[in-house]
């Protein structure tokens, strides 16, 4: 039994059955009801209704300015809603905060900040630690294991300004892992990362899903959606459609989401067609 696990009160890495039990309940992981969010007078999300099912990999898709980031941020209470509400496993976010891990966009922080990779991952434990207490050996060993799961254990002592884009993203994901949450909200986890990192990340996301956790990720590459995700949320100010990829990710829905941006659209439709016909 490792130090970190004893702090959390469970054995080693939780088995997927244990995790499934911990992250499942009578209520859906995320329930968004009539959510409207506005900056000044300009609405960026209008009347969004969404119920997210358990243990799925979910892509949030839409053109620039469609409100994808806003949706994630208003779920974790970073942006106040003008109307509507969000519930996490049937209760307000405030009471369920410990069940949700948020992974911001990579560019949202100053990567020249004087701190090491391990320190950033340790930040994931700050919520559990509460006021004043410093992370100890238990937290350190937990953080190391999170880095190992992302394959960057050797970077632990590195100053964060020396990381590549893909490594930065892995550090952020390791930090979220350290939170040991049931719901992971990720803002563009694949943006600007190399192919190896992309594979590593999607593998990790699948692991999380198989442990019964729910992952909601803003995603831009329409071509990889059928391959990577189970579910898709199409967003453009309003909710266009949400559901299993096979049902919802249709050319008609994409047309409604993206409007005139035809180039991406034809490409995506092409991918869909090829999938349906079973071609590579």
């Amino acid at each position: 039994m490792t130090q970190a696990a004893s702090v959390r009160g469970d054995n080693e890495e939780p088995t997927s059955d244990q995790r499934k039990a911990a992250c499942s309940g009578p209520f859906p992981p995320i329930e968004v009801h009539d959510l409207t969010v506005a900056y000044q007078t300009r609405p960026v999300l209008w009347d969004v209704d969404l119920v997210v099912p358990e243990a799925r990999l979910i892509a949030v898709v839409g053109p620039n300015g469609a409100g994808k980031t806003t949706l994630l941020k208003s779920i974790v209470g970073l942006i106040p809603a003008s109307a509507g509400w969000v519930k996490i496993y049937g209760k307000p976010y405030r009471e369920q905060r410990h069940l949700v891990a948020y992974v911001p966009q990579r560019a949202s922080v100053d990567w020249d900040f004087p701190t090491s990779v391990l320190d950033v991952v340790l930040m994931g434990t700050y919520g559990r630690l509460g006021w004043f207490r410093r992370p100890g050996r238990a937290e350190r060993s937990l953080a190391r294991r999170c880095l190992e799961r992302l394959g960057i254990a050797d970077l632990a002592r590195r100053q964060i300004s020396e990381l590549s884009g893909g490594q930065q993203q892995r550090v952020f994901l390791a930090r979220a892992l350290a939170q040991d949450a049931c719901i992971y909200l990720m803002d563009e986890p694949f943006a600007g990362v190399d192919a190896t990192t992309e594979r590593a990340i999607i593998q990790l996301l699948r692991q999380l899903r198989d442990q019964g956790r729910t992952v909601l990720a803003v995603h831009h590459d329409l071509q990889t959606i059928p391959e990577y995700f189970d579910w898709v949320v199409l967003l453009n100010l309003r909710l266009i459609a949400a559901g299993p990829v096979a049902e919802v990710f249709t050319p008609a829905n994409l047309q409604r989401t993206y409007g005139g941006q035809l180039k991406i659209l034809t490409q995506a439709a092409d991918v869909l067609l090829r999938r349906e016909e079973g071609r590579p």
């Binding site: 000044q40 007078t41 003008s82 309003r238």
Partner: peptide, 12 residues
């Protein structure tokens, strides 16, 4: 003007 405007949202 800004404070007044904040009270009403323009439906998209």
């Amino acid at each position: 003007a800004t404070l007044l405007r904040r009270r009403r949202l323009v439906k998209p």
